[in-house]
Simulated assay, not measured.
Amino acid sequence: MQPTQKEATPMPIDVEKVTSAPPVRAAAVWDEREVRLYHLALGAGVPETSSDELRYVFEGHEQGLQVLPTFGVVAGGTGGVGFQLFDLPGVDIDLAAALHGGQEITVHRPLPAAARATTITRVPAVYDKGTAAVIVQESTLLGEDGRPLITQRNQIFVRGEGGFGGDRGPSERLPAPDREPDRLLDLPTLRQQALLYRLAGDGNPLHADPATARRAGYDRPVLHGLCTFGMAVKAVTDRLLGGDATRIAACRTRFAGVFFPGETLRLRIWAASEGDEGGAGYRLTATAADRDDAPVLTDARLTTR
């Protein structure tokens, strides 16, 4: 009798299957209420009588309701355009091992305050970083006229799934300039800020449930990386772009460390020139001021028009 051949254990990530799968289309519908709630979750509206702040949270503002481009990653209450790890063909991973490693947004035109839009999501690459695999997801948000509003790329690090002999991928590091920052901003946060940001669509219990946070190795729930990134983009818009979010052409960051609600987010900002990588705009980093400037956001850039 011939020995029974042992079935091969399926790989948690089938690179060929996931990268060759057809794009996924999904609806993304939002209105002014969701935009206002998103901005409030970033800390907008302080002081509550400031016209500069009311443009983010008051639908009756004389200049209309302004929409930060980072709203696009939660547009429609999905928790993040392109975050579809549950539905990706060829991906069967433990989500506890998945970390949001980086985010990049290209702005084709300003986001409207209300829309019935469509997202088209694909996985163009899976990189092998040795100890981890990196799933690159790309989503384009199309307006009601079918034209692109934003394109975003996010990197999902999956711990323990590297070493499959794949391409390591390009280096996307963008070190901060070797000089003192041009601006230093301290942004306080609320202890309940993660609970507010969850209402934008990211219901991960890591950001609300102490027991879940402890299982992940933290002593209490952490703030969403996309919330700290949104706060940084808003701060640059308000302090350096005259409050005009339509001047933002692109923004990106790498999520380098944990941040807890109630801490102070410290931004270091450097002006960039046309000759710098990424063009004119600003480089920035963010740290936790309360914990000896522990890194929170690195390799960050905001490109302006």
Rank of each mutant, 00 (worst) to 15 (best):
A280P: 07
F260A: 09
S51A: 07
G82F: 12
G60T: 15
V233M: 03
L99P: 08
V73L: 09
L267S: 01
H207Q: 08
L302W: 06
K129H: 12
E104L: 14
L187H: 03
A8S: 15
T228C: 15
F86G: 08
W30E: 04
A113I: 02
V126G: 06
D238G: 00
A28H: 13
E48G: 08
G60W: 14
D92C: 00
R268M: 01
D182H: 06
R25A: 01
A114K: 13
R214H: 13
A176W: 08
T4P: 04
D14H: 07
H39Q: 02
T106V: 15
E180K: 14
D14S: 06
G243M: 10
G45Q: 10
D145S: 00
Q152W: 07
Q192A: 09
T285I: 10
C227R: 02
L37E: 10
E34W: 11
F255D: 01
G203S: 13
A208K: 04
V73H: 11
T119Q: 10
T140S: 02
F86P: 00
H108Q: 15
L40P: 02
A271L: 13
T121F: 08
A28N: 07
L142S: 04
Q193H: 02
Q103A: 00
A271I: 07
P221T: 07
V126R: 09
G76C: 10
F164Y: 15
P10D: 06
R266P: 01
D167V: 08
A235S: 15
A132K: 11
P170I: 12
V57Y: 08
F157H: 06
T4G: 08
G279W: 05
D244T: 13
T119F: 05
A245R: 02
R214T: 14
M1Y: 11
A300I: 00
A194M: 07
D92Y: 00
L223H: 05
V35K: 02
E144C: 06
F83E: 00
T303L: 07
A200C: 14
G242M: 11
N154A: 09
D290Y: 08
G166F: 08
E180T: 13
D219Q: 15
V29G: 00
T285R: 03
G76H: 04
F164T: 06
Y127Q: 14
G230L: 03
G130P: 02
C251P: 00
Q84A: 11
R179E: 10
V233E: 01
F71Q: 10
A211E: 12
V158H: 02
